[in-house]
Design a protein around this nucleic acid. Sequence first.
DNA 1: ATGCCTTTGTGAACGCGTGCACAAAGATGG
DNA 2: CCATCTTTGTGCACGCGTTCACAAAGGCAT
Lengths: 254, 254
Amino acid sequence: MATGRTHRPATRSRGIPEATVARLPLYLRALTALSERSVPTVSSEELAAAAGVNSAKLRKDFSYLGSYGTRGVGYDVEYLVYQISRELGLTQDWPVVIVGIGNLGAALANYGGFASRGFRVAALIDADPAMAGKPVAGIPVQHSDELEKIIKDNGVSIGVIATPAGAAQPVCDRLVAAGVTSILNFAPTVLTVPDGVDVRKVDLSIELQILAFHEQRKAGEETAAGDGALPAATTRNAAGDQGPDGDVPAVMPA
Amino acid sequence: MATGRTHRPATRSRGIPEATVARLPLYLRALTALSERSVPTVSSEELAAAAGVNSAKLRKDFSYLGSYGTRGVGYDVEYLVYQISRELGLTQDWPVVIVGIGNLGAALANYGGFASRGFRVAALIDADPAMAGKPVAGIPVQHSDELEKIIKDNGVSIGVIATPAGAAQPVCDRLVAAGVTSILNFAPTVLTVPDGVDVRKVDLSIELQILAFHEQRKAGEETAAGDGALPAATTRNAAGDQGPDGDVPAVMPA
DNA sequence: ATGCCTTTGTGAACGCGTGCACAAAGATGG
DNA sequence: CCATCTTTGTGCACGCGTTCACAAAGGCAT
């Protein structure tokens, strides 16, 4: 039971570092914008600025793909778009299913960023029978019962989970059993999957909490000048705190 | 001009590594679940499993906060919930504004994960006059003209951008000018902000592209048995290089 | 009180990612 | 054809993050 592998060992497959892979979509976006403006070539410096990264890092990233630049000139935009697209696997069609058509699921279904790359929403799935047949983003929602059949009929290998936290793991299990090997998880839960299955998670609440940490630190530094104590953050027995049961630390070790 | 700071120097403020901060919300969630089940104490091993991380990493993370455990026993759940909440700044109220009430913005407004922590949606803002006054998630949408006033009146320091890509930077500039110092960006664009302002971005399309990369790699390894032409990464600028699809970039350098 | 057993907290080694700085490569102009 | 100038590709060093492994700490039973 404790064998849940959420993290993959590494991308030692035979090349491209994980950190580089994560930046390729960024470069691709910047390049696409240049392409639309019919810019023929771009230097590492310019492209790096557009993508918001260091130019040395960008050149090193590209070096993992091959030598696609021309010294003294830069990179050919169209050619690079093609190479990165191919490397990311975007030259082929990726059917995806979205499970859980609530507010977020519907937003995802309507999101243009999917279709613009090689992704195609093959189906929308929800457990609520009342949703069945109702069109969202022009696609009729199907009931969970059809999940396995949908996956197999469309050859889906990527699934998006936008269900409530409680439903995520069961849905995940069914997706994996039906043949899905990559999952994008929006539910605030740790998913346990077998080896060979990739999971990436997006958690809105976590991002905000990280921002709050830095925000608090900034505020603390300002007021720290006049007062050693942090702002009311150190509120003792903060009653209105998170607790269903107005709880206080109450239990102190020692 | 190329001075756009999207990345912060570091969190050497006086302690906690960035990687650790990013995991604290994860621990907090696991601990909250335990708390609701009235579990009094938990060992690093158990908690690590629940959060999906290595137990040594978890102990080291906690060691940055202080010595909150008891050897031979583990950690007191309630006490740890409190300490992490305090460290993350969740014991205080964080008013946030969401700008761009489209599908995604509406989904965010309805997302329960915000309110459950210290976050409170102070206002919803959209540039479309037709949206003004219309309630979303029980909160009436306000027009962009009110942005500065809303920020100042509510003391908002965290802003969420869910606008189309084109509108993101102008909105960002206005938020920052009005006093916002932390931004969560859902628009697919690189935001340029002054020093001292934190930006975190969530890009749905990028996550999918990363999954596609790994998915392609998995598929490639399978079929690689019969075909050795896969790792063409070392290909020099050879014209008409690998053409599995016979698709050539059309524009070739040289 | 004493010894055993469990679990924390952390020193140290390792590996990955980042950024610097420069030599090699190629274009361009005379 | 040669000199010069631009920009790539990368060797190298540094710092952060992860993991191992173990000594110290504390509870608990006898």
